[in-house]
């Protein structure tokens, strides 16, 4: 196997839906020459133990992701804003399992 061959197979991200009614969940990634083969590789790698009823693949480089270095500005600002949580309601009597 040559390096150029490796380089020519792009990376794909795989999303598997385990059952009707659930969402597709990111399962992992794989190499494949094109989308058609990526779907088949995904079937072989990520649904071989009966995990799935539907599979999506997409080129890894088409995903835009948040910057790990800007975690503070992105994700820490909701901290302390407990008015955004529904914690100030009083439970009605007789409502179980809330």
């Amino acid at each position: 196997m040559t390096e150029s061959l490796n380089a020519s197979w792009p990376l794909w991200e795989v999303f598997v839906r385990s059952s009707r009614g659930l969402s597709h969940v990111h399962a992992g990634s794989l190499h494949a020459p094109d989308a058609t083969m990526a779907l088949r590789n995904a079937r072989d790698l990520y649904t071989r133990r009966n995990e799935g009823t539907s599979v999506w693949v997409m080129p890894s480089d088409s995903i835009s992701s948040s910057d790990p270095d800007s975690k503070g500005g992105f994700f820490e600002s909701p901290q302390g804003k407990d008015f955004r949580h529904a914690t100030y309601y009083t439970k009605s009597e007789g409502v179980k399992h809330l």
């Binding site: 196997m1 061959l5 197979w9 794989l30 190499h31 494949a32 088949r40 590789n41 072989d44 790698l45 071989r48």
Partner: peptide
Amino acid sequence: APEMEEDVALAN
């Protein structure tokens, strides 16, 4: 196999 993914495919 030529690639790890294909290794698994043929093994399946």
